[in-house]
Nucleic acid binder design. Structure first.
Lengths: 209, 209
DNA sequence: CCTACCGATCGGTAGG
DNA sequence: CCTACCGATCGGTAGG
């Protein structure tokens, strides 16, 4: 029986393993504090071997960011598929984003600050991946503006929203009182100002429709 | 004429200069990518001299954070002095915070992620400084809740608010279209949901009362 | 992908 | 606060 594929060059699985380990370590310890030896050890390689897959530590960071963002983008699209109501769609975007950020293994937005060390070409690739990621958000916000649910979908609104969500990485505890669903509700409520027209006591007690 | 003070040990000015330089460099390049040599050079010292003032690089980071937060706290208190209306006070808190963060030389909240390398004792000192800093915010939010301007002043609200503001360090450009005053208005409007009851076009055109 | 290694750099110290 | 320095570590490479 014929093999699926001739073995050409490096094993793609090992490359993906390196990227996952790198992303996790970069988030955990920071780019500079993470050594290429840490990353190699995390996947059972020797110190020099990551450089067989990636030209430099910088390229490892760039690839981890772009792959992480694209994986998150795919997750977003799958989650909002078929949801026509923009308010529900926003809620799903927020919840899915928080899941990627706080439960996932590759919280790319947290690596934003670590890209300082990268050159302009890498920055451009990462920026393009961020732009893709933000597309469904901007569409949804604009639909909410058109239907009068928010007063403005101008760019700062989206950025303030991402700020609310991404910063939670600094304080959210999975073993705390606040569930991810509740946090998502809080954030959406803040944006939509719907709590203002609800009785405060019931603001967090919404059932599923 | 008598000297104000006998010279006892290290010059306090030099210590403060080191802290300012360290804070700026840590924000700019990250804790690990900043060398103690960078910091020494920034204040015109030789490579070993910072260790005359601070026991370790970690202590430099801890002191820079605590000092930066306490300076920001003093700035907050001065700014809100005598403002009775909680809505106006919140607006001033937000604007002052954004000023410290985006125009100041020591944006301490951005160093939160860099404290990974510090031990438990240092974390406790920094946490205490953060708690002080958050006091006037929490008081103001609770007053807004009591007077019915926001539906809840529970802890996540304050944290989401800080998220909106702090994340702006990642995208705000001083030479862009959005002024700090406008950004502050946007953030406050999001929280108070006042835009909902205003005509959208005038939401950003408020004069001073 | 491993072995063996290099050049550079870094935090920190001794002694003045 | 400087000079001179040490031990350790790190990103990366040559050769297989």
């Amino acid at each position: 029986m014929p093999r699926r594929k001739k073995e050409t060059g490096p094993e793609p699985n090992r490359r993906a393993e390196l990227l996952r380990a790198a992303a996790r370590l970069f988030v955990e310890k920071g780019f500079d504090a993470t050594t290429t030896r840490d990353i190699a050890e995390a996947v059972g390689m020797r110190s020099g071997s990551p450089f067989y897959h990636f030209r430099s530590k910088q390229e490892l960071l760039k690839a981890a960011m772009v792959d992480g963002l694209d994986a998150g983008y795919a997750r977003l699209l799958a989650a909002i598929d078929g949801i026509a109501d923009p308010e529900k769609r926003l809620r799903v975007l927020v919840r899915t984003h928080l899941g990627t950020l706080l439960e996932g293994e590759c919280p790319s937005p947290m690596l934003l600050g670590e890209t300082r060390a990268l050159d302009a070409a890498a920055h451009a690739e990462i920026a393009a991946a961020f732009d893709r990621y933000q597309l469904p958000w901007q569409e949804t916000l604009e639909e909410l503006e058109r239907t009068g649910r928010i007063p403005s979908a101008a760019s700062p609104v989206r950025l303030l929203l991402f700020g609310m969500l991404n910063w939670s990485k600094h304080w959210y505890r999975a073993d705390g009182e606040l569930s991810l669903d509740e946090l998502a509700d809080r954030a959406v409520a803040l944006l939509l100002a719907e709590m203002h027209s609800l009785a405060p006591q019931t603001a967090l007690e919404k059932d599923r429709p």
